[in-house]
Design a protein around this nucleic acid. Structure first.
Lengths: 205, 205
DNA sequence: CATTCCAGAGAACAGCTGTTAACTGGATGA
DNA sequence: TCATCCAGTTAACAGCTGTTCTCTGGAATG
């Protein structure tokens, strides 16, 4: 599986990653639509023209960043969803997971929150597609639950959408929360999820 | 109350409004952090330097746009909240109101959704402050409701936050919905609100 | 070993940017 | 009527932008 790359390809990937890392850092206080290609190459210490060996444009780089930020999350989320905990435990674990990821990769989540409704269409769409994927995965998971008995597919999708949106919202809230207030923000997110779960339990009344 | 402005002040306000309108239009496919002052003045047909007679920077203009987009909404929301309808009716009216406003001022809502997590701190904060205001207003309104008996202030704020976030979410969803799918999106938003209301009703169980 | 390949460098391009300074001419107020 | 004010203009500044073409030197290939 793991084919050893030649020195040349390895170097190329290293430069590509350096460009993506630098871009992510520069995006801490600006939006993608104002990110210049020269700005990125300057930060890496590489000629402006080298950029074109890796990306067509900064928009293209943005799409690659979406994959980097959200691609690896599917596996983690799926594992969480298939575990069989009771409702409160699952809620706590979910919020913990989000807080952990936000804590270890803040720039990625900042990027996603910022560009989700941002000025670059291709990136917006890439993020939307990833979130739709998450929504479908969540829908599949909760449809297995005995509590989903009698639910229409449409209602399941509605609920899954609510969960996914809330995850994004929580991540973005945690980003703008001072470290000492993180526990409070986590408890807030948990209460909101608990309220939604209550609504879910009485949906068919 | 309505003091007649001199010709000079009237002209100044007219130019200022033209700058804001042009900016809003240009922001349809870019973020504020990439909006140039020359770009705006060019669109209006005015010298670049004239910009400084009205705003310090494009960020300053952005803050003014936040006020324009959300300032007038408080009165409308308050009126809606104090009306005494039953739960389902209120939900339907709320979603209708949002759909109406989004339909008549799409650029304003696009701007808010885009810059809520955008790259310009001052604008992010201005939007956050406005949303906090809405949250407090909603909290005050639902605390009057008999259903709020026994609720802690913290829980009321949590629920109000959920409602406000959902309004923003619905507005942004309606923006990216094709006209023929708007009714479907509205019904989806209503079902989500109904689920939250169910959770609310059973919160103290 | 000789050849091909290709990531990155270098230089140059037209055109854009925010900001300054000094100005004009019509509305304003005494 | 006449002096003052001030929204908008003109010109110029240094510095930035994306994109092109040409070149180079070390890795890959046979």
């Amino acid at each position: 599986m793991s084919h050893t790359l030649g020195i040349r390809q390895a170097q190329k990937q290293k430069t590509r990653q350096a460009l993506m890392d630098a871009a992510l850092e520069l995006l801490a206080d600006q939006s993608l639509s104002s990110l210049g290609l020269r700005e990125v190459t300057r930060a890496v210490g590489v000629a402006p023209t080298a950029f074109y060996r890796h990306f067509d444009s900064t928009a293209d780089l943005g799409v690659a960043l979406v994959e980097e930020a959200l691609g690896s999350l599917h596996a983690v989320i799926s594992r969480l969803l298939t575990a069989t905990w009771d409702s409160d435990e699952r809620i706590a674990r979910t919020v913990e997971l989000i807080a952990d990821r936000v804590g270890s990769h803040p720039a990625h989540f900042r990027f996603i929150a910022r560009e989700r409704h941002g000025g670059v269409r291709a990136v917006r769409e890439a993020i939307g597609a990833q979130l739709d994927l998450f929504t479908e995965e969540v829908r599949a998971a909760i449809s297995q639950d005995p509590a989903a008995e009698g639910w229409s597919d449409d209602d399941l999708l509605m609920l899954a959408g609510l969960y996914v949106e809330h995850m994004v919202l929580t991540a973005s809230a945690l980003l703008t929360t001072a470290p000492e207030d993180v526990p409070r923000a986590m408890r807030l997110a948990e209460r909101q999820l608990r309220l939604v779960s209550l609504g879910r339990r009485h949906w068919l009344d």
